[in-house]
Amino acid sequence: MSPEVTVLACVALPLLAPALIAALRRWPNPREAVTLLTSGCLFLLVYSLHDDVLQGARPACEFPVGRDFGVLDRLHAQPP
């Protein structure tokens, strides 16, 4: 996996896990298993990143909202 995908997975994984955790509300054991599995996967994902980072890669995630803020710049003409 490329570092970018890994980063995305790192952020998305724990944000999606609650859905599964909530679905397993009635069964505590699978629920806790999911939690542990999530954190385990996360650890592995993060650990797999550190080699790339040491070699100079700078993976990062950005939020889509930030991109749209550029629109204002073009329109921001002060009326005389």
Partner: peptide
Amino acid sequence: YYSYFAVALGSVMGIAFAGN
């Protein structure tokens, strides 16, 4: 409170990897 826990975890990841 595993769910909130996981969300909090995700937010931390987001903070750590934020590009801006």
